[in-house]
C-alpha cells in the first residue's frame, strides 16, 4: 500500500468518527451536563410549581477543579444555599442546616453525568430554537417511553450548552414544574471567599447535636426489592432517627437519571394505625403500604403508578 493510500484511509477513518459524533443527538445532553458543572456563571432564574413560585440568584464557579455554588432566594424569607460540591449548607433565618447530597442537581445542574440510562427510557427530539434570557437556546424534548415517568423539555444554550430552561410535563402535556433563567452572564472570575462570606462553617460543630435531620449512611438491608420500573436504580440509602423516638427509619432513593423516587421504610409504634393508598400533593404522588410492622411510603414527582409500583416492590 502506498503512502498516499494509507493517508487516505486514515482520513476516511477520522472523518467517519467525526461524523458519527456529530450525528449522535444525545451528545448535546452530555455536553450540557458537563457545562453545568464546569462553567462560571451568575444570573437569576424563576421556578414555578403547581403551588408556588420564586426567584433565585445564583453564582456558580469552578475554581481549581472544585465546584462552588451559592443560591440566594429573592422571594419570601431570606435564605441561602451554599455548596462546595460535597456538602450543602442551608442558611435560613440565622440557622445553619447541613445537608448531604450525593448528587448536586439543583437547577441548572439537572442532567446526569452518564446519559446512557436516559437513552433506554426516553425518546430524544430536537425542537425549535428560542431566545431565553437574551441567549439563543436549542429545545431538547425527552419523552418517556413508558408510563412510569414524566417528560422533560430542556432549552440548552446554543454556544456553551448550559441548560437555561426546564419544563416537566405529565402524560397529558400539563406542566408539573418549570425553571427558567431571566438573566445570566458568563465567564466572570470569582473568588472562593464570596461563597463562604455569609456562612460561618465553624458553627457546624455546635449545631450538629441539635440537628434533627442528622443522617447516617447505612449498609445493612433487611429487605428485598421485587421488580422495579425500568431504568430506576438505587442511588442512595439514608437512615435517620425518627423525631421523638429513638428508632431509625430508612430512605432509599431511586433514579432513572431525571426522575427521582424515595422509598421510606418506617417502623410503626404501638397505637399508630397503618395507612394504605395513593394521594397527590401538588406535583408529588405518595403511595403507602403496610407490611410486617413497617409503614412503607414511596414519594416522587412521577406518575401515581410509579410510586405504587415502588411501595409494592418491597418485601421482608
Amino acid at each position: 500500500m502506498t503512502l498516499f493510500k494509507k493517508l487516505f484511509t486514515l482520513l476516511l477513518l477520522v472523518l467517519s468518527f467525526a461524523s458519527s459524533a456529530m450525528d449522535d443527538p444525545w451528545k448535546i445532553l452530555d455536553n450540557s451536563a458537563k457545562a453545568s458543572h464546569k462553567l462560571n456563571y451568575e444570573g437569576i432564574f424563576h421556578s414555578q410549581t403547581s403551588s408556588e413560585s420564586n426567584s433565585t440568584h445564583i453564582i456558580h464557579a469552578n475554581i481549581d477543579k472544585k465546584e462552588y455554588c451559592l443560591l440566594k432566594m429573592l422571594d419570601g424569607a431570606p435564605s441561602e444555599v451554599f455548596s462546595d460540591g460535597e456538602m450543602v449548607y442551608v442558611k435560613s433565618q440565622n440557622r445553619l442546616i447541613i445537608k448531604k447530597r450525593k448528587n448536586q442537581f439543583l437547577f441548572p445542574s439537572i442532567l446526569p453525568s452518564d446519559i446512557d440510562n436516559l437513552k433506554a427510557n426516553y425518546h430524544l427530539l430536537f425542537g425549535e430554537k428560542k431566545r431565553i434570557a437574551d441567549r439563543m437556546a436549542q429545545l431538547i424534548v425527552l419523552t418517556a417511553k413508558d408510563d412510569f415517568r414524566f417528560n422533560y423539555h430542556i432549552w440548552i444554550d446554543e454556544k456553551n450548552f448550559l441548560p437555561l430552561k426546564l419544563i416537566v410535563t405529565n402524560n397529558k402535556n400539563q406542566t408539573i414544574e418549570q425553571s427558567s433563567f431571566t438573566t445570566i452572564g458568563f465567564n466572570k472570575v470569582f473568588n472562593k471567599d464570596i461563597f463562604q462570606k455569609n456562612i460561618d462553617l465553624s458553627k457546624l460543630y455546635e449545631n450538629q447535636n441539635k440537628n434533627k435531620f442528622v443522617e447516617n449512611y447505612v449498609s445493612n438491608k433487611f429487605w428485598n426489592l421485587k421488580k422495579l420500573p425500568s431504568g430506576f436504580k438505587e442511588v442512595d440509602l439514608i437512615s435517620r432517627r425518627v423525631n421523638g423516638l429513638n428508632i431509625l427509619d430508612y430512605q432509599l432513593i431511586f433514579s432513572d437519571g431525571l426522575a427521582y423516587v424515595s422509598l421510606f421504610i418506617r417502623p410503626i409504634a404501638r397505637g399508630t394505625e397503618p395507612k394504605e393508598g395513593v394521594v397527590t400533593i401538588g406535583s408529588t404522588n405518595i403511595s403507602a403500604r403496610y407490611q410486617d410492622g413497617y409503614q412503607i411510603m414511596s414519594v416522587g414527582m412521577v406518575p401515581a403508578e410509579t410510586v405504587s409500583t415502588f411501595s409494592g416492590a418491597i418485601e421482608f
Partner: peptide, 23 residues
C-alpha cells in the same frame, strides 16, 4: 417525609430551603 424526599432529590431550591425551616 416530603421534606426528606425534596432534600435529597429536588432540583427546585425552594423545596430545599423548606427542609431547613421544618427542622
Amino acid at each position: 417525609i416530603i421534606s426528606a424526599h425534596h432534600a435529597a432529590t429536588a432540583n427546585n431550591m425552594n423545596h430545599f430551603v423548606q427542609v431547613g425551616d421544618s427542622a
